[in-house]
Design a binder for these strands. Structure first.
Lengths: 123, 123
DNA sequence: GTAACAGTTGAGCAACCATTCAACTATATG
DNA sequence: CATATAGTTGAATGGTTGCTCAACTGTTAC
């Protein structure tokens, strides 16, 4: 009969690991803040609606209604996603009367976006 | 008193939009499959645990136990995430006795990863 | 003033997801 | 054979998230 798992048994604390290799990687490991910002950046791009919005804005400055029309969705949905992109400083906006025009605010993100596009288009 | 919202009222079907600009973007819009694969690719990178794993494997070939030790988490957690990376063809593995050594399987993903790293480190 | 429209926002909901736990396979060792 | 270790896997769980709906703000036009 198998013994019940001891807590921490799964943690590889004292078992045979390549301590040297692990230590070497640990030294070079990026700080927690960098990891967090990096994964957050990728996460924002990890949604088809936001991908479409970013692609659209990389081509033209557009108002919320334009984007909603383009994607075949509601202004509400677009507005919610634009808020996320705004919080991440990926888009900026400009008010003109009752219209709000959005455009990309981050040249870096276009490089990242294009690199991703190149990745999936070479398959 | 405000009238109840009519269904589709939010869809911008007949309202004043920049039809020309929208049509131009629509022509250039990437196909649905490309959008989907692109957002899926970014989504995989949108988790701190997977980011750490990918960074680690970009430095060294490592077994599951090494990675778990490095991240201070369990083999189970690492194994679950490695399965996702395996399904996306981002990592490959090599068995040696009861050990399983993982390494990156996609040169493109390193470019994408580095581009993201450059993005967050210039802030 | 009222009406219409662009856009925002919060609540609610359903789907998704990362981790934990437990059980399992497989290999190595005695 | 039994035991220990490396790794995988399925179920359960708690947290997250994207969309919908309804109500709201603000601006333009009448």
């Amino acid at each position: 009969m198998k013994l019940r798992s001891v807590k921490g048994n799964d943690l590889c604390e004292v078992t045979s690991i390549n301590t040297e290799r692990v230590a070497s990687v640990r030294r070079r490991m990026k700080p927690e803040g960098t990891i967090h910002r990096l994964s957050e950046t990728f996460k924002v791009l990890g949604d088809p609606t936001r991908v479409k919005i970013i692609f659209a804005l990389s081509q033209e400055e557009l108002c919320v209604c334009d984007i909603a029309n383009l994607l075949g969705t509601t202004k509400s949905t677009v507005s919610h996603q634009l808020r996320i992109l705004r919080n991440m400083r990926l888009v900026k906006y400009r008010k003109e009367g009752k219209m709000v025009y959005y455009s990309l605010d981050d040249r870096h993100i276009e490089n990242l976006f294009d690199e991703g596009l190149r990745h999936v288009e070479e398959m």
